[in-house]
Design a protein around this nucleic acid. Structure first.
Lengths: 166, 166
DNA sequence: GTCTATAATTTGATAGAC
DNA sequence: GTCTATCAAATTATAGAC
């Protein structure tokens, strides 16, 4: 789903990849919606667990660096954009439960990013600045994957870190 | 395709929307790839024609404002992200001719954006700074559409314009 | 819990009448 | 150039044996 989107994946193909039959997939995820929602849930859990593990009690600017590294490794490991970047692009054509889960993932990202910003910012401004950073990284990931040029993503990260230095 | 992606669209449904039969669509676009490639070509042509029309002999900073407005109106008119934002997310799961067309669209965007930047920048830096702007706008469009919060996109644009003021 | 088998529908695509 | 008719394959999903 990360490379072909929600509509580009079939139960049979998925089952073949895992080495089981499609009926067995339906046993765990009756409908395709269930599968996608579970996928976003697992993705989100893994993503934030990795973040928190690498965050520790680091400084603000170090936290943002950690956040950016998480995105970079997604690009490095899979040559693909973020699962929720894919679902975000599709969001208005997705079953509502999936679209809602993706929106929640982005909101959670903005909260996490918000914590890396200076303490004296108003909540509204914080939200917008978080969205700016999230947008730059998601967009950067997508552009870099499409143009197969990781350097472009690194350029985006460099700018994000420079603009948000303490 | 802009809302459901390449795999989420069928010849029959498309034909129904237009009020013809699917066989007639195949007459013009024998394969689905042909349809998508033509779609990107038309989208790209319309997009740049609109840009150039509104550009005139404006100053650099005005040009960037024009570019950002083009994105904003896409969000306003259709509540959707860019067609190539969608295809970009899908790009690694797309037939090669489509992925290539999308990559070409992004490259052309970066060239256009590059012209709005100060003249004394090295080509390499120019390319990276263009990618930063493109990424911010594409990402901002996607985030704003997913969260149904246009204000977030406006926040991104504000930052882009401020950071790239002459 | 995994399988076989299959239902019901949809898909991309073609042949050929008009 | 648009249609009817149709194909072959794929799709989501279910029933029921083991």
């Amino acid at each position: 789903m990360r490379s072909r989107g929600y509509h580009g994946v079939s139960f049979r193909e998925l089952a073949d990849d895992v080495g089981i039959k499609s009926a067995s997939v339906h046993y765990y995820f009756p409908q395709k919606v269930d599968l996608a929602v579970a996928l976003v849930a697992r993705y989100s859990k893994t993503f934030f667990a990795g973040l928190d593990k690498n965050a520790g009690d680091a400084s603000s600017s170090q936290l943002l660096r950690t956040y950016c590294s998480a995105y970079r490794s997604a690009l490095e490991l899979s040559e693909r954009a973020c699962l929720c970047g894919m679902f975000g692009a599709e969001s208005c054509g997705l079953p509502k439960p999936v679209a809602d889960a993706v929106a929640a993932f982005f909101e959670a990202n903005m909260v996490w990013i918000g914590r890396t910003l200076p303490k004296d910012i108003a909540p509204r401004t914080r939200r917008i600045r978080s969205a700016q950073i999230l947008a730059a990284l998601q967009g950067g990931l997508m552009i870099a994957a499409t143009l197969k040029d990781h350097g472009l993503f690194d350029g985006v990260v460099k700018r994000v870190l420079a603009d948000n230095a303490p």
